[in-house]
Amino acid sequence: ENLWTTASTFIVLFLLSLFYSTTVTLFKVK
């Protein structure tokens, strides 16, 4: 379960960073 928890945390952080960079890009375009 420890490995699954680590993987889940990594996926969440990846999605958050992806969402953040997408938002920054949209604001830069405007």
Rank of each mutant, 00 (worst) to 15 (best):
L15F: 10
V29H: 09
F27P: 01
K30S: 09
K28M: 08
F19A: 15
T25R: 00
T22M: 15
N2I: 08
I11L: 09
V24F: 05
F27D: 02
L18W: 05
L26S: 04
I11S: 06
L16V: 11
V12F: 13
T9D: 02
S21A: 14
I11V: 12
L26Y: 11
L3M: 14
A7Y: 07
S8F: 14
Y20Q: 01
W4K: 09
T9P: 01
A7N: 11
T5D: 13
K30Q: 12
L18N: 01
L18F: 06
A7C: 14
L15N: 09
I11E: 00
F10H: 00
F14N: 04
T5N: 12
W4C: 09
E1A: 10
S17V: 11
F10V: 07
F10I: 05
T5G: 11
A7G: 08
K30H: 10
V12P: 05
I11H: 03
K30P: 06
V24L: 08
F27N: 02
V29G: 06
L15H: 03
V12T: 10
T9W: 09
L13M: 07
T22P: 03
F14P: 04
N2F: 10
S8T: 15
F10T: 06
T23A: 14
K28C: 08
F14H: 03
L26C: 09
S21T: 10
W4P: 12
T25G: 00
L15Y: 00
F14Y: 12
S8C: 15
S21M: 01
L15P: 05
L26I: 11
V12Q: 03
L18T: 09
T23W: 09
F10M: 07
T23S: 11
K30I: 10
V24S: 00
K28F: 10
L18R: 00
K28V: 09
F10D: 02
T23Q: 03
L18E: 02
T22I: 13
S8P: 06
F27E: 05
I11Y: 06
K28G: 06
V29P: 04
V24A: 05
S17Q: 07
S21H: 02
T23D: 00
T5Q: 10
F10Y: 12
F27S: 07
T25M: 10
F19S: 14
T23H: 07
W4N: 15
T6A: 10
Y20V: 05
V12D: 00
V24M: 08
L16W: 04
K30E: 08
V24E: 03
T5C: 15
S17E: 03
F14D: 02
L16K: 00
V29W: 09
S17Y: 04
S21I: 06
L13Y: 05
F14I: 03
L26M: 11
T6E: 06
A7T: 13
S21F: 03
A7P: 06
V24D: 01
S21E: 02
E1W: 08
S8N: 13
W4Y: 15
Y20W: 10
F27Y: 12
K28T: 07
W4D: 14
L16P: 02
L18I: 14
L16M: 13
T25A: 09
S21Q: 00
E1V: 08
V12R: 00
V29F: 10
F14Q: 01
L26P: 00
N2Y: 12
L18H: 04
F10E: 05
T22N: 02
S17L: 14
T9M: 10
T9G: 07
K28H: 07
T23K: 03
W4I: 08
T25N: 03
L16D: 02
K30N: 10
W4T: 12
A7W: 05
S17W: 01
L3F: 05
F19H: 05
S17F: 03
S8Y: 14
L15E: 05
L15Q: 06
L26D: 00
K30W: 11
V29A: 08
V29N: 07
V24Y: 01
L16F: 09
F19E: 02
L18V: 13
F27T: 08
V24T: 05
K28D: 03
T22G: 11
F10K: 04
S21D: 01
N2P: 10
T25Q: 04
T23V: 15
T23I: 12
L13K: 05
E1S: 09
T23M: 14
T6P: 06
T9L: 12
S8I: 15
W4H: 15
T6D: 06
T9N: 06
Y20E: 00
N2E: 14
S17M: 15
I11Q: 10
T23P: 02
Y20F: 07
T22A: 14
F10A: 09
S8W: 13
F14A: 00
K28E: 00
I11F: 12
F27G: 04
V12M: 05
S21R: 01
K30M: 10
T22W: 05
T5I: 15
Y20S: 02
F19M: 15
N2L: 09
S8V: 15
F14M: 00
L13S: 03
L26R: 02
S21V: 08
V12W: 09
L13E: 00
L16R: 01
T5W: 15
Y20C: 04
V12A: 11
V29Y: 07
S17N: 06
I11R: 01
L26A: 09
N2C: 11
T9E: 01
L16T: 05
F19C: 11
N2H: 13
Y20I: 03
S8Q: 15
V12E: 01
Y20A: 04
A7S: 12
K28S: 06
V24H: 00
A7I: 06
T5F: 15
T9I: 14
E1K: 07
I11W: 08
F19Q: 02
T25K: 02
T6H: 04
F14L: 02
W4G: 13
S21K: 02
L18A: 08
S21L: 04
F27I: 12
T23L: 14
L13V: 03
L3I: 13
L15A: 08
I11A: 11
L13I: 02
L16G: 09
V29T: 10
K30A: 09
T5R: 10
L15C: 10
V24K: 01
T22Y: 10
V12K: 00
S8G: 13
W4Q: 15
L16C: 11
L16A: 11
V24I: 11
F14E: 00
K30R: 14
L3W: 07
K28N: 06
T6M: 12
T5A: 15
V24Q: 00
E1I: 07
L3G: 13
E1C: 07
E1G: 07
